[in-house]
């Protein structure tokens, strides 16, 4: 192994250990939080069934294992979690794992699309802003991004639905695909893409605003740097300067910021998916809250932490690759 490979392996091992410890803390904390809330699944099911018969509720509670002391429940839960067993959702009559797995791709697709859109658009807008710093294109972009930044996500989503879906009728306003159509081939992919536009854009707006400002600042800094002046003094052309010397260095703060935002983005998915009835885990989580499906909710929260931890690890490695002066530690 080269020293670099060894460093990376050591880094990964340490981060993995940290991640597991962190997950354990999160699982315990989530468990405690959810059990601090009055009412449980038995109450919810009984309430829906329209009975308040204490005997029925007690039986239900016993069936669901909710009559055990809390520490025992926690121990059982953690034990199952360690085996990769997320348990069973009585509401859906399905194992939690399969339920989540079914919904996960939709959420990942939405996240990837909105991050991808926010990053791509912010690179374009931020570069324009920097090139025309303090002139009208810059001011216009600043104004628009400020608007994106200050507007609540759900309002944005609703307005987008009203404008593009209802008034103009250009885009579907809910769901992930047209149920009436066959779910195969390019036509299906296009259909999903059309359904994706509004939620992804809505979800991206806030981040787009932050990223654009960030790109603008770091571009300005890079263009004013000594190393760009030196590159020019070597006779390097503008295109090469932009691609080789500026973009790379301007990208690092963006990568950091995207990493920090991943958790927020996952949280935002609850709102976006609810507004656009997107069949992802955000929507699933929303439903689980109202149905007191504690087991499902816990699993989603833990899984969300796993996604954020893994994504942050990837971002750290990308950051280290972009910034040689930062060694993985």
């Amino acid at each position: 192994m080269t020293p670099r490979a060894r460093r990376i392996a050591r880094f990964l091992a340490r981060r993995l250990a940290q991640g597991v410890a962190l997950l354990l803390c999160i699982a315990v904390l989530d468990f405690a939080l959810l059990h601090a809330v009055p009412g449980d699944a038995a109450d919810a099911i009984a309430g829906e069934a329209g009975t308040a018969d204490p005997g029925y509720v007690a039986t239900l509670r016993h069936q669901l294992g909710l009559d055990q002391p809390l520490p025992v429940q926690l121990g059982l839960y953690l034990g199952r979690l360690a085996q990769g067993n997320f348990g069973y959702s009585f509401r859906y009559g399905q194992s939690v794992a399969s339920l989540i797995l079914e919904r996960l791709p939709a959420t990942l697709l939405l996240m990837a699309a909105s991050i991808g859109f926010a990053v791509a658009a912010s690179l374009v807008l931020g570069t324009l802003s920097a090139r025309f710093a303090n002139r009208w294109p810059d001011r216009l972009i600043t104004l628009v991004t400020l608007f994106f930044y200050a507007t609540p996500l759900f309002w944005f989503g609703l307005m987008a639905i009203v404008l593009f879906g209802v008034h103009l009728g250009w885009l579907p306003t809910g769901g992930m695909y047209d149920v009436a159509r066959p779910r195969t081939g390019l036509a299906f992919a296009l259909d999903v893409a059309r359904h994706l536009v509004l939620p992804a854009f809505t979800q991206a707006c806030f981040f787009l605003a932050i990223y654009t400002r960030l790109v603008r600042t770091s571009m300005l800094q890079a263009y004013g740097s000594d190393y760009v002046r030196f590159a020019r003094a070597k006779g390097v052309g503008e295109l090469r300067i932009a691609l080789r010397h500026v973009l790379r260095n301007a990208l690092t703060p963006l990568v950091t910021m995207v990493g920090l935002n991943l958790g927020t983005l996952l949280g935002g998915a609850v709102l976006t998916e609810t507004v656009f009835s997107w069949p992802g885990i955000g929507r699933l989580m929303y439903d689980a809250v109202f149905q007191r499906d504690v087991n499902l909710l816990l699993s989603i929260l833990v899984l969300g932490s796993v996604i954020v931890i893994v994504a942050n690890l990837l971002v750290d490695m990308l950051y280290a690759a972009l910034t040689p002066a930062v060694e993985l530690r």
């Binding site: 020019r232 070597k234 006779g235 390097v236 052309g237 260095n249 040689p324």
Partner: peptide
């Protein structure tokens, strides 16, 4: 001018710590 820079006129700046691109 770009063709002359670096080929017929070479320039050395004061700050060696910042003249080089940290990412290359």
């Amino acid at each position: 001018m770009r063709d002359l820079r670096g080929r017929r006129i070479g320039m050395i700046f004061q700050e060696p710590m910042t003249s080089l691109n940290p990412g290359l």
